[in-house]
Design a binder for these strands. Structure first.
Length: 302
DNA sequence: GCGTCCAGGTCTACC
DNA sequence: GGTAGACCTGGACGC
């Protein structure tokens, strides 16, 4: 086993743990939090199929990454690790205009102060979409089961015992029966199989979505057209594409809104949407940050 | 241990 | 455009 250390520089407004804990993705493999070591891990698969276990820690210089691999890393490998992790931690995004807007609003002045607002994402849009489908219409426990099964049964095993996230090809080469029996994805199974097939065959290139210049509503339509992606799932995928015009309501955030703004009284989705509409293109991000503000009281919120 | 009920989004058919 | 019912699983609950 070879170990290589690389450093990813970070801007002064970047907060490593606030980004890691921005939502539930940090608890789903191939991501892993090691609370004892105060480290955040990820198994990456590079373009030459090399698996690398990356152990990230925040330091004064930025993020130090210990990269464990079966063979020595060359410059291309290092560049690819750098690029994938920067994409995951949203270091590719300029937060200046969002922070300027947050600073103008008294109730959100804590956001730039805390370095909040960067939402963790996967190295690929494909992984984000698969995981998002696995969050629909089920408990978080079932999401963990489905994603865990996807990695252990269709991903590749690293020496540490951890697994990579499966490729679109790996999904495409299975059957609906396999998804139902082994992944426990139930009625979502044909959606996941179709997604794998479309991406593997090149009929759908969702990786382009991150750099798309399409108007937000057009991009939303494309995301929404993927089977299994309804308003909740597509709205949240949009946030991971850097577009925050949609709220992506689910039962947990609805309940949190009722609790924070209506003394627990239920209101319609339209009422929630009307409440955040004045925040314009940032409404989805302000909404999510408000719903999760209490997470910021703890270094390890969950 | 077994059976029943419920929560959780999306899709499809229908009005 | 809105709505009802089906989809499937794990967990809670009662027996």
């Amino acid at each position: 086993m070879h170990t290589t250390s690389i450093t990813i520089p970070t801007p002064c407004n970047f907060n490593f743990w606030r980004t890691v804990y921005s939502h539930g993705w940090c608890a789903l493999p191939p991501f892993k939090i090691d609370k004892d070591a105060q480290a955040f891990e990820r198994i990456l698969e590079l373009s030459d199929r090399l698996l690398v276990r990356c152990v990230m820690k925040a330091t004064g210089k930025g993020i130090t990454v210990q990269c464990h691999s079966q063979k020595p890393l060359n410059a291309t490998h290092k560049q690819e690790i750098h690029s994938q992790l920067r994409a995951c931690l949203r270091l590719t995004e300029d937060m200046a205009s969002f922070y300027a807007e947050a600073s103008r609003l008294r109730k959100f002045q804590w956001v730039p102060r805390m370095g909040a607002g960067r939402m963790l994402r996967s190295p690929t849009v494909f992984e984000d979409v698969v995981k998002m489908i696995c969050t629909t219409n089920c408990s978080w426990a079932l999401t963990e089961i489905m994603v865990g099964n996807l990695t252990t049964k269709l991903g590749r095993k690293f020496e540490s015992g951890a697994y990579s996230f499966p490729t679109p090809q790996a999904l495409a080469e299975t059957t609906e029966k396999f998804f139902r029996k082994e992944i426990r994805s139930g009625y979502r199974s044909p959606y996941l199989l179709e997604l794998g097939e479309r991406v593997a065959s090149g009929k759908l290139d969702m990786e382009l979505w991150r750099s798309s210049t399409l108007p937000t509503d057009e991009l939303f339509k494309q995301v929404r057209a993927v089977k299994g992606m309804g308003d909740y799932a597509a709205g949240n995928i949009m946030k991971l594409l850097g577009r925050y015009d949609y709220l992506g309501l689910d039962s947990w955030v609805r309940g949190k809104f009722y609790e924070l703004h209506k003394n627990g009284r239920k209101v319609t989705d339209k009422t929630i949407e009307k409440y955040y509409a004045p925040y314009g293109k940032w409404q989805g991000l302000f909404f999510w940050l408000e719903m999760t503000k209490d997470w910021y009281d703890h270094k390890f919120p969950f």
